[in-house]
Nucleic acid binder design. Structure first.
Length: 637
RNA sequence: GCCCACUUAGCUCAGUCGGUAGAGCAUCUCCAUGGUAAGGAGAAGGUCGCCGGUUCGAAUCCGGCAGUGGGCUCCA
């Protein structure tokens, strides 16, 4: 069996290799935990960590969908690799883990796969499933493994990173042998429902310094019904894509003539933004923030002092030469806020000082990362910098978390936090400073009772931070709120307060954005709501629909009642049939369509229809005015 | 930035073998006076993303650029 195996792998060396063969099932029943190999740098599903010890398998219970689904997808990845190596003998195999929602496998291939290749591969996979090949477990010595994969540089890399003392484990199905820690299903026949979904380039080991491999993505489920439901869900999600709704609801546009990643907000989305900004200002003023406004461009000198030019120069727009001085469009607001702070001396009695600005910044993001409103080149951060003493830091963070919760929960979000700690290699400041700042963030999270995950090494080079990521329609995460303790700028700019001792002390600077950027936040908000905005932000809150022109005057009168109550209301006076006006109102996702006709005129009634609920029946006009007013007042979602 | 794919009317899309372009919706005009998801008729609307090449002839084939989409990498 082993010889057969080696032959298929093209191993022709004279030294016989004899891995111990045992079935995965036998091995598990013997009490040994399942093992599996991830390519380093592969994006792992949340909660699944690469185990450092081969003797302790990872906890698969965190895998979304559970361990069984994990096995299924992991095995599907092997079947994919089996099919690919059979159809394309020249490919080199890299790695293929299950990921959230599916699996992938990476291959090195001289020419990229085509859509037709994908069909052939999937067809071959179905044949392999029909063959019901057993997944067979075997252990090998390092020398044996090195011999087996001597022509597979990617596998040799994975072999080289298996920790000393750990077992080298393999799984084989048919002619395909993989360096792998499992676990797998018993045989390929268990794969009842799978589908290859797409393919894309992916850097080897996730580093753009390395060559690009060809990655094929797929998904697998326990049953065809589950798979169909999954595909159906994706199809439904695509209908909530903010780029699609942006066109359909006339919300925003991006123009080639203007530039990629530069958003034009149309009137309706302008109203949504206005409402979110008003709410934001109201809450910030209540929270002791002071509004500031700063220039959009500044001398390049500012960014030399801040260090941004050195560290972020490649994302800044090129300089403009004015009066023999180089100016830059601002990529962040912090230096300007420091300028305001440093324009005079500050006593410890004044602290904390909280400057807030809806500050528009421009960053030259690489073209491949742009994504509708969610990743753009010009955006407005709901930015704030808090200058405080070390003693005040923790309570300030707590205050920020409280404010963040108010904004996010009002918009209808549930969220979870990441505590991003010091990066492994590049960072500034002392261990003591990092510990102090990181502990303050952690303590604040715990005081606030917010669950969080540690994002080890995910901090900025200048600061640990709390990040909150919100999901778009397809479940992709986007970083929105961020709270960062800045260990860098106070030193570079010399930001001090005068203490009770009459001496200058360095301030602690907290940098935070709670929506993150209005563009990204609103983009996700569109997807979160599916374009059905809560009444308090809806551009048009109510549409009066006269049954026929005879009811037009009564419709205007009804609109006036609502307007007087602070409701954004319009009258659909078009010469269309009622059914058509209802349909258009529904498609435009107006929260309240209020039908009025001859029957209502005498009784003073109307027939409102709530988006998502349908016809509410006939009621006095005063009643609907009150209902809508209340919904706006409470910012119901 | 990298890999792959795509770009035809305002929107969603057809367009065969290379022979100068089509539908539905939206828009405009007229007719229809209507109670909860599309009333009817007609008109107008396109330098087929841009630049170059091959060809008697290019939406169609080739190259470059731009933009968009899916990923990778990077980030609010």
């Amino acid at each position: 069996m082993v010889e057969h195996l080696l032959d298929k792998q093209g191993v022709t060396g004279s030294s016989p290799v004899t891995p111990t063969i045992s079935s995965g099932r036998a091995r598990r029943s013997a009490g040994a935990p399942p093992l599996f190999v991830f390519p380093a740098g592969a994006s792992l599903p949340k909660g699944i960590a690469m185990s450092q010890s081969a003797s302790s398998g990872p906890d698969l219970s965190h895998y979304p969908g559970g361990e069984e689904l994990y096995r299924l997808r992991h095995s599907a990845a092997h079947v994919l690799a089996t099919a690919v190596t059979e159809l394309f003998p020249d490919v080199k195999v890299a790695g293929g883990p299950p990921v959230d929602g599916g699996f992938y496998y990476d291959f090195a291939k001289a020419t990229p796969f085509t859509p037709e290749d994908l069909e052939k591969i999937e067809a071959r996979m179905r044949e392999i499933v029909a063959l019901d090949q057993k997944f067979e477990y075997a252990e090998a010595t390092r020398e044996e493994a090195a011999q087996i994969w001597k022509d597979e540089k990617y596998k040799l890399h994975f072999l080289s990173v298996i920790p000393d003392g750990a077992k080298v484990t393999t799984y084989r199905n048919g002619n395909f042998l993989d360096l792998c820690r499992g676990p797998h299903v018993e045989s390929t026949g268990k794969l009842k429902a799978f589908k290859l979904t797409h393919f894309a380039g992916a850097y080897w080991l996730g580093s753009e310094k390395n060559e690009m491999l060809q990655r094929i993505y797929g998904t697998a489920f326990a049953s065809q019904a589950d798979l169909d439901a999954h595909l159906q869900r994706i199809e439904e999600s695509l209908k909530r894509d903010h780029r699609k709704l942006g066109r359909e609801l006339d919300l925003f546009s991006i123009h080639e003539e203007v530039g990629a990643g530069l958003v034009h907000w149309h009137p309706k989305l302008g109203m949504v933004r206005h409402m979110l900004e008003s709410f934001w200002k109201e809450e910030h003023l209540k929270g002791g923030y002071q509004l500031v406004y700063t220039p959009h461009i500044s001398s390049e000198k500012l960014y030399e002092i801040s260090g941004h030019l050195q560290n972020y120069g490649d994302i800044m727009y090129a300089p403009m030469q004015v009066d023999e001085q180089a100016f830059r469009v601002k990529p962040m607001n912090c230096p300007n806020h420091i300028m305001i702070y440093n324009s005079r001396k500050h006593s410890y009695r004044e602290l904390p000082i909280r400057f807030a600005e809806l500050g528009t910044v421009y960053r030259y993001e690489r073209s491949g990362v742009l994504h509708g409103m969610e990743r753009v080149r010009g955006f407005t951060q709901d930015d704030s910098h808090i200058f405080c003493t070390p003693d005040q830091l923790q309570s300030e963070i707590e205050g920020v978390l409280k404010l963040m919760h108010k904004l996010l929960s009002t918009c209808g979000y549930e969220y979870h936090c990441y505590l991003a700690t010091r990066p492994a290699d590049k960072y500034i400041g002392s261990d003591a400073e990092w510990d102090f700042a990181t502990n303050a963030l952690r303590q604040a999270l715990e005081t606030a009772g917010l669950p969080y995950e540690i994002d080890e090494g995910g901090g900025a080079f200048y600061a640990p931070k709390i990040d909150v990521k919100l999901k778009d329609a397809l479940g992709r995460e986007w970083q929105c709120p961020t709270i960062q303790v800045d260990l860098n700028l106070p030193k570079r700019f010399g930001v001090y307060f005068t203490g009770p001792d009459g001496q200058d002390h360095e301030v602690i600077m907290l940098h935070r954005a709670l929506y993150g950027s209005l563009e990204r936040f609103v983009g996700i908000f569109i997807e979160h709501t599916g374009g059905e905005f809560p009444v308090w932000v809806a551009p048009t809150q109510a549409m009066i629909v006269p049954v026929n022109p005879k009811a037009l005057e009564y419709a205007e009168q009804t609109a006036e009642m609502l307007r007087a109550a602070g409701v954004r209301v319009e009258v659909d006076a078009r010469d269309e049939k009622l059914g058509a006006k209802i349909r258009d109102g529904e498609l435009q996702k107006v929260p309240y369509l209020i039908v009025v006709g001859p029957r209502d005129i005498e009784a003073g009634t109307c027939a409102p229809r709530r988006k998502g609920q349908g016809d509410l029946g006939t009621m006095p006009r005063e009643q609907i005015v009150e209902r809508i007013r209340e919904e706006i007042r409470t910012r119901a979602h």
